[in-house]
Design a protein around this nucleic acid. Structure first.
Length: 402
DNA sequence: CTAGGGTTAG
């Protein structure tokens, strides 16, 4: 039985779910710790159907009071995109631990609701719970995704001065991202230079990402230099720089990076993602043109592309009014976008309206349903689901493909 | 015999 935690904690989520299925088949009754491992795996895979089944089993087995399980459930719902369910459990918890707060704050952050995350963080402090390094990572990243750079900087200062916590590279990478996204590249660079701890690849990578957004080729070259000293095998950074060159029309640079990659024998796997819909996992591969209606699908995506900017995917709950989901995705038409739209429609959080920029589209709108039904027609099922790509901020976390 | 276990950016 300890395999469960072993597998779960080592990221072998699909193995956990396989084992769990076997247990069910053999009629073995799982205990609370087993459920924790299963739920954590569901969270990592975005397996919301299994997750909800497990939730029901927990309820009927009388384990639902277990605070560990409640936190695991919150996390599962958060990672499967169901913030409202997560919030429901959170609100009904009598004893909210730091972990409960952190999971919920991180959830809002990941789904682009920085303002809510910040409000919750302040509420946590008012309730007498002291944040730790993890909580600060969550709130800083929430601020960065929502463009709340000054608020984020305030938290960063409070972390050091008020809470006497030593920021690690993971905090610095958040703050570099926070500054970089809003174009404060100079400050981001200065922050890195002033770091009392060693910068890791993520710190320079965050700067490189900011250079991509703000088209700063010179600084990108510096950041890239540093980042590959630290992570020479990470293909994503090569791709990022080559895309920066490509955007700038710098063909020499582009060729240079491609040659570097060839010398290092680095190959970029095609970007892919999968999303669970009605119990089936659907796979999307970047640049995939296998479908007989590919032309139509891409025309539809081009239409969506025109309407989409930024990188936010959020769910808004306006109390009694209709529940809305906001979709905005990043640049380049590829599979992640399909999955992001798909995932958006897939939330069973009671979303009635999908907003793309200022265009309001009803959930049943034929534009969306046509797109979705076309994707569903393919009935692509993934067997080797090793890692679910989370729609952090509406965009898959994997790097852009060529 | 029964502990263990939940939260972390790019």
């Amino acid at each position: 039985m300890q395999w469960f935690l072993g597998y779960a904690q080592n990221g072998l989520a699909s193995e956990v779910l396989d084992l769990y299925k076997r247990m069910e088949f053999e009629g073995i009754c799982p205990d609370a710790v087993t459920y924790v491992g299963v739920l954590s795996s569901c969270a990592n895979l975005g397996a919301q159907t299994v997750g909800s089944q497990v939730e029901h089993r927990i309820e009927s087995s009388g384990l639902s009071c277990n605070p560990f399980l409640k936190n695991a459930l919150i996390n599962m719902h958060v990672r499967c995109g169901n913030l409202l369910k997560a919030r429901g459990i959170f609100d009904r918890m009598s004893e909210k631990t730091l972990v409960s707060w952190t999971a919920m704050i991180g959830g809002y952050g990941v789904h682009g609701q920085g303002e809510v995350a910040v409000r919750l963080f302040d509420e946590m402090i008012r309730s007498g719970v002291t944040p730790d390094q993890t909580a600060f990572v969550c709130v800083l990243s929430a601020c960065s995704h929502a463009g709340l750079s000054d608020k984020g900087l305030e938290y960063f200062e409070a972390m050091k001065n008020q809470y006497k916590l030593h920021p690690g590279p993971e905090h610095y990478s958040c703050v570099v991202d926070l500054l970089g996204r809003v174009g404060r590249l100079k400050e981001a660079r200065e922050l890195i230079d002033s770091m009392p701890v060693e910068a890791d690849g993520a710190v320079w990578g965050a700067l490189l990402g900011a250079c991509k957004i703000h088209k700063n080729v010179g600084l990108a070259e510096i950041a890239f230099q540093r980042v590959i000293e630290l992570e020479p095998e990470n293909v994503g950074y090569y791709v990022l720089l080559s895309n920066i060159y490509s955007d700038a029309g710098n063909i020499d640079g582009l060729v240079k990076v491609r040659l570097m990659m060839r010398e290092q024998k680095l190959k970029k796997e095609p970007g892919h993602s999968y999303v669970e819909h009605k119990g089936k996992i659907h796979l999307f591969i970047a640049g995939d043109r296998e479908h007989p209606q590919t032309e139509e699908i891409y025309r539809m995506l081009d239409k969506l592309e025109d309407l989409m900017t930024g990188v936010v995917m959020a769910q808004k709950n306006n109390g009694d009014s209709e529940k809305e989901a906001v979709a905005e995705t990043g640049v380049g038409v590829h599979s992640e976008k399909l999955a992001a739209v798909f995932g958006l429609l897939n939330t069973d959080a009671g979303t009635d309206v999908v907003i793309i920029k200022n265009l309001r589209i009803c959930r049943d709108c034929h534009l969306f349903m046509k797109l979705v039904s076309k994707i569903v027609e393919r009935q692509l099922v993934v067997r080797d689901a090793t890692r679910f790509h989370h729609f952090k901020n509406g965009v898959c976390s994997c790097k852009e493909h060529w």
